[in-house]
Amino acid sequence: MAGGEKKAKAGENGRAMEDLLAAVAETGDRRAFAELFAYFAPRVKGVLMKGGASDTDADDLAQEVMVKVFKKAKLYDVSKASAATWIFAIARNARIDAIRRAAKPDLDPDEPMLVPEEAPRADVVCELKQRDARIREAVTRLPAEQREAMMLHFYADEPHSAIAERLGLPLGTVKSRLRLAIEKVRKELDFDDE
């Protein structure tokens, strides 16, 4: 399929990705999916590799996440989360599922408990896009080492202590970088609280 051309630009205006998801949901539109894939799959793979996954594993896992994105497209609710946030939640839940399957091979993968919801709870529809844009912006402004700590917090499949070891840093340093990063990004949010 010729859908693999890079359309990363579409992702930068924030809106297009949500429309693409809607197109996949409505008609199983493969071209729309190809665009989503071109933007998100390499990013999911990128964060997984930063978290210590091998090239092959990260490639496989990114594909697995994108399979779920396709299959669950109808469950996506644009009023509740940006596409990036929803796909983050899919990736996170896929990781939790994998851990649970490893611990209990017989477990029904669709068992309802314990996987946090994929669609976050916000109901402030109109503020959502602005907020997510501000969050993205705030993340780009973080010092590199804080951004790294935050990325590993959300995407590395290992405890903070193992992350610290891999980075050759004391655990306290990793935790304080993460705390500082979250505090900075959070300031962006407090703006429209009350």
Partner: peptide, 12 residues
């Protein structure tokens, strides 16, 4: 969760 999404959107 939105921060998790923001990190993804910014990922290399």
């Amino acid at each position: 969760e939105a921060i998790g999404g923001g990190v993804l959107a910014n990922a290399e």
